[in-house]
Design a protein around this nucleic acid. Sequence first.
DNA 1: TATTATTGATTGACTGATCAATCAATAAAA
DNA 2: TTTTATTGATTGATCAGTCAATCAATAATA
Lengths: 195, 195
Amino acid sequence: MPKVGMEPVRRKALVDAAMRVIGDHGSLTVTMSEIAKEAGVSPALAHHYFGSKEQLLIETVRVHLQRLRDSVVTALRAARTPREKLSAVIRVSFQADQFAPETIAAWLAFYAEAQRSEETRRFLVIYARRLHSNLVANLKALCPVGDAERIAEGAAAMIDGLYIRQSLRSAPISTEASIALTEDYLTAHLNALEG
Amino acid sequence: MPKVGMEPVRRKALVDAAMRVIGDHGSLTVTMSEIAKEAGVSPALAHHYFGSKEQLLIETVRVHLQRLRDSVVTALRAARTPREKLSAVIRVSFQADQFAPETIAAWLAFYAEAQRSEETRRFLVIYARRLHSNLVANLKALCPVGDAERIAEGAAAMIDGLYIRQSLRSAPISTEASIALTEDYLTAHLNALEG
DNA sequence: TATTATTGATTGACTGATCAATCAATAAAA
DNA sequence: TTTTATTGATTGATCAGTCAATCAATAATA
């Protein structure tokens, strides 16, 4: 065989290239040629390994969400109290690599794609549920379940909203300011319940 | 068939058709043929009146935002106190037609398109600024300017976030629940400042 | 060691489909 | 007749996907 065992190398290179191209482009309307060129291989090879453009894009979304998930798991392990864990979830959502313009553009593109691709939608629903349940699980330790659900709903919406607003680059909000806004939301509501 | 004075009729029909097709499709990746067919005319006529697909789509975004703007203006006029005006802004953001699945899909598509089309981006930035300034203007009557800016930022993010989460149709939130969440956000923060 | 068979990796060239855009032609009104 | 409305037919570009052919590394064989 030639350089045997190229498959995993190429698959990773193509997925990474797809992320970059999608980010640049700000949309999933990218060509296999662009992705392949970015990865330094021929378009034919991309088809050889992924079968179709859709499969390559789906794999890209999957890997992207997997990475985010890993970050969350690590951050949660490092935090001790429920309140710290809540902060950890927020911090990860806005950490540097998630907040890079290309990453934000890619997220937006994934959301749009979810309207058409059932599989992409499934991945994003899983992400949304995970975010929600991570929040609820820790809020429950601090307030009644009903309130926990409601506050989690609001916090998740705020996180996603801060994201989408970043994508317009009109009034850029810093990572710290985004974290502070979401933290304030939690604090204000938890205090309101105690008071 | 040529009845004279068809231009405004056709333009409106095509823009409305574009909205429907985009909503169905959940993306701006729609063809002139689809739009024209939906409007009951030939693709050639669409080109005749709009010159290009991009211009038709831009006009569609423009009309869409214009309608939202009109709703806001009307609602603001009907409200008296600053607090009522804040509620009016929130209510309009989630009113029935804005919350229809196709409308949400279209919004999402516009956000994604803004990554590529400078003109679409300009329109959305104007929308974002208007929402922000409507909120700030009325918050200023209830709290210090600095806090008003911060609270407006959070409320706007929450509104957009509730939108984007609706697009996934995973845990659908009712109009009332969305309004309640945003209202709670305002109330909690305003109370926190007074207390 | 030299030869050969085998096979994964890789690509250039091609195909078929799709689509935006153009244009020439026609029909109705002014 | 001149202008406006309208369309069918066509063009040119872009792309996803296919395929036959080539390359290079290994392993079996002589």
